[in-house]
Design a protein around this nucleic acid. Structure first.
Lengths: 328, 328
DNA sequence: GTGAAAGCGCTAACAA
DNA sequence: TTGTTAGCGCTTTCAC
């Protein structure tokens, strides 16, 4: 193991000089500078992370609690994580993956000084972790938007605006009765923040434009097709659909494009709410609203960076939705 | 911040006693034991991770290099990560998420003593990271199986056996000309270990049973349907299909179940190679071979745990495939 | 512009 | 059965 003492010896300087060359917190003569830099390179020295964080009282690590439970859109989660990781790296932070959905993991990581800050995903409208986070000594950012006004910084896609936008678009196209096929029942049941907000925006949008809107939890597999058929059969006037369910999307699309079944005659208009590449990959969709998953992650990581730098990232950051039409 | 000294003071003992109560490396009287345990609980003390690892020369953290690049099966990756995390937690290890696919990230984490060991995913048949890993002071486990015999421990699903099994099954069913629709071209092009091995096993199986087999890279979106149609059109005798592509699976299934197109008349037999739940979710599949993604992750984490405990986990651990028939 | 040395909070000898 | 203390490798005051 190469230590700072080895580097100091090789460069013929003191330990503190090596430290200051690395941190840049002191002016060093160019000559010394060079000798030290050279020694560091020669010896392939990397400062011992624990020693550094013990002395400096900061770890340069961010704790990320990502959901691994069922019902979540895996692509979206992965992309958010990717955005977090990329942005964090750019700011010289590493990511500690916290498991479990509980508050215990969060407070343990904080109390053990394993991380400088926390990023928490899969927020529920009334999330029990919030109270824990508020009591910690380190800052945190929620990826999601809980119901109550609380003191934590929140970053997310504006699902409410997306729901409203979809309703508005379908109204424009002349539809009067529309449906949202959303997350699986388990996700809706635990009032995952985004599911709640999307539903609210969608129904509000329907109200505003005098539409009749309904919301349906939707399984993520092939059974989604049957759900859609059932809903279409139950309402002969239903002609507009918003889908927000990665797993169900290809199956629903296939069902709607099929030459048999209730959709065949009606040819309902479909809007998909999903990452842009996914909308591309699924055929037969008129419109889509992209979920900028990677940006969400990057924005959240950046908000945390700001907090750690004692800057003010703003209380709530919601990325706005935009509609992409297939047909020009 | 609560330190060990605070706990010692509260319990009326020395700090070493507190340390020994936590580690259990010394016999302590029941009475002292209780007082210390109580003080720890009262003060909500968690030992400072960096201080501990500086003194003990071990971090209880495992570095995980997971692929975030395109073309990978996100569900499988997430499930493997889930397995790693769960197994690691059970053994009191945390997971540091390493980004990038490069060797640099690995050696940096090792040299900075950020991790006790490394877990590396998305292995290519001829992976440049292997040499780096072999030179490190800390142990590592590959999730994948590179081509050359090397000195590293490898854990993975036995894709080669799976390919052979699929060919054998299709032969049994009486098919003579069969095709593998596999990973996207980018994955095949970089010779990702599992793609190479699956192909080899599949073609070997064809040889063994006198079948004509072909292998096709397959995009993960709706375009997969067109690829399948093209292949079916090009070979009128092709009647058996193995699919190993999460993104393409629902689209191919839909295409094969459609009442039009080349598949309609032929009704080819299909075997899906994917996580079990996914096979369930996609309609119209006769057989499937499950990828035990979570077990792979758990097995890899366990192999690394063994290495860290100076046990011998064995050089190569390949989880065997099993065939599940829909029709009893 | 540079060095010496006092911690950071723990673990693990060593001592009793 | 318990306490005292010397580090672990770094950062950062002091001192020059």
């Amino acid at each position: 193991m190469v230590t700072i003492a080895d580097v100091a010896r090789a460069a013929g300087v003191s330990i503190s000089t090596v430290s200051y060359v690395m941190s840049g917190k002191r002016t060093i003569s160019q000559e010394t500078q060079d000798r030290v830099t050279q020694a560091i390179a020669d010896l392939e020295y990397s400062p011992h992370a624990s020693a550094r964080s013990l002395a400096s009282r900061s770890t340069n690590v961010i704790g990320l609690q990502a959901p691994l439970r069922s019902g979540v859109d895996v692509h979206v989660v992965m992309q958010i994580v990717g955005g977090v990781v990329t942005e964090a790296r750019a700011n010289h932070y590493d990511i500690l993956l916290l498991t479990g959905d509980d508050a215990a993991g969060l407070s343990h990581a904080a109390r053990a000084s394993m991380v400088d800050g926390l990023l928490v995903m899969d927020i529920e409208s009334n999330d029990p972790r919030i109270q824990t986070l508020e009591g910690l000594e380190i800052p945190s950012v929620l990826i999601g938007l809980p119901a109550g006004a609380d003191s934590l910084v929140c970053v997310d896609f504006d699902f409410e605006a997306a729901g409203r936008l979809a309703a508005e678009r379908l109204a424009e196209l002349g539809h009067r009765r529309i449906a949202l096929f959303g997350a699986p029942a388990e996700v809706m049941d635990r009032h995952t923040s985004y599911a709640d907000r999307l539903m609210r925006g969608f129904l509000d949008g329907c109200d505003e434009h005098g539409l009749v809107g309904s919301v349906h939890a939707c399984p993520s597999g092939a059974e989604a097709g049957a759900v859609v058929d059932a809903v279409l059969n139950a309402d002969a006037e239903l002609t507009g659909i918003l889908i927000h369910n990665e797993g169900a999307l290809p199956h629903i699309a296939a069902r709607l494009n099929a030459t048999d079944g209730p959709a065949a005659a009606r040819e309902p208009a479909v809007i998909a709410l999903c990452p842009a590449e996914m909308a591309q990959a699924v055929a037969g969709l008129a419109d889509s609203i992209a979920i900028p998953a990677e940006q969400i992650g990057a924005a959240a990581a950046d908000a945390l960076r700001a907090l750690l730098a004692h800057q003010n990232p703003g209380k709530v950051l919601l990325l706005p939705p935009t509609l992409a039409s297939r047909v020009g």
